[in-house]
Structures are given as C-alpha cells and as structure tokens.
C-alpha cells in the first residue's frame, strides 16, 4: 500500500478525484442538470463537500498511524486545501446566487443570523490555514507554531457541524448532521485517546511496560 501511495501518479490521481464533485457541478450547471433550484443545489453541495473534506483530512492521521501507511501523509495538505476550495465555492455561491453580491446585504446577513455567522467564522478561521500551506510558511513560522495554528481545524470542524446543525434545526432533520458529528467525534476522540495513552506510557508507572510508540 505504501508503494502505491508513494507512486508518482498517486498525487495527480487524488487531485483529479477531489475535483470530481466540482466537475459534476459545472457540468450540471451547463446542462441544466441541477434540478429545479440549481442555486440551492450548488450552495448545499459545496457546503456538503466542505464538511466531507474536513472529515477526510481529519481521517488521514488516525488512518496513517493505525495502518502504518505513512505515504498517506503526503496527501494531507492537498486534502485540506480542497476543503478550503469547496468552502470558498460555498461562500461564493451563497454570495452570488442568494445575495447577488450585494456586500452590504451579505454583511447584514452575517451579523443577523447566528447560523451564517458561525459558518462565516469557520471560513475565516480556515483561511490562515490555507494561506500557510506551503513549505516556506512552515519554515518561517517554525514547525511548532505552525502545528499549533493548524490545530484550529478541530475548532473549525465543530463550527462547520454547528452551522449544518442550525441549518437543519428548523426542520428537525438531523440524520445527516448526526452522521457527520459521529464521524468527527470518532476522529477527534481518537486523537484524545492517542494523546492520553502516550502520556500514560511516558509516566514512571508505565516504564515497566514495553514502549508502544517512540513518537
């Protein structure tokens, strides 16, 4: 598996896969294939794909550690940037199709509606993460600080969920929200568990046991 992951064609392939939802939307927009309300379709599916990419990028590290497929690590940045790509499209389609790019109206809407404010905050917080996604930024910031900044994704995933939850709240339709919440809870819960078990194995009481991990 690691060989496959490190294959030179793997990255371009994953890149194209990540673009498929976008390609589908563009195709649908030009062929009248987005249903009766194409604006709503585009706003919603770009939001859906943002949340999906957040789940995918959060799954990379647990999957890598559990399977030892270390080649997964090289996809993490690209997957994260795709989450940003879809959230930009989400915000853009809302601003365009719903608000006609009336900046004043958009500002008022963000201030007035908690569910939009929460979504917009998530977008704002994701922006510095996307902006520091190149090697020189890591060097300039120092790996420690860079990592700390990128831990913001945990907060962002929570904001994304809350945004989605509120969107569905008026219609009591939480099935999908709960699925995403469960996935994110597992992925974040794994990190807590992983962190805690490392701490235990590092304490004197744990010294007698074989070391689980050096890292």
């Amino acid at each position: 598996m690691n060989k496959l992951l490190l294959h030179p064609a793997a990255k371009p392939l994953v890149f194209l896969l990540c673009l498929l939802p976008f390609a589908w939307m563009v195709y649908g927009a030009f062929t009248n294939g987005l249903g009766a309300n194409p604006a709503e379709y585009l706003i919603r599916s770009n939001g859906d794909w943002t949340l999906r990419f957040i789940c995918i990028v959060l799954a990379v590290t647990p999957l890598r550690v559990m399977t030892k497929w270390n080649g997964l690590a090289r996809f993490r940045r690209m997957l994260g940037l795709f989450a940003y790509f879809y959230v930009v499209l989400h915000l853009l389609s809302y601003s365009w199709f719903d608000m006609g790019f009336e900046l004043g109206d958009i500002a008022k809407d963000i201030a007035k509606r908690p569910f939009i404010l929460v979504g917009f905050t998530g977008f704002l917080l994701l922006t510095p993460l996307a902006a520091t996604s190149f090697n020189r930024a890591i060097k300039a910031m120092g790996a420690k600080r860079w990592q700390l900044l990128h831990k913001l994704v945990y907060v962002i995933s929570g904001l994304g969920l809350l945004h989605f939850f509120w969107m569905r709240a008026g219609k009591n339709n939480f099935n999908e929200v709960f699925i995403y919440a469960a996935i994110i809870a597992v992925l974040l819960g794994w990190r807590v568990w992983n962190y805690a078990s490392k701490k235990i194995s590092a304490t004197p009481a744990g010294q007698g046991r074989p070391q689980l991990s050096k890292r």
Partner: peptide, 16 residues
Amino acid sequence: RWSQATERRIGDGGGL
C-alpha cells in the same frame, strides 16, 4: 434563519 424579503422563482428562464 433567513430573510423573507425575496424569493427565487423556480424555472423563470434566467436559470442559475
């Protein structure tokens, strides 16, 4: 959670 000042007329020809 949203404004009621405007509405989207479904299939009014202007499309997206």
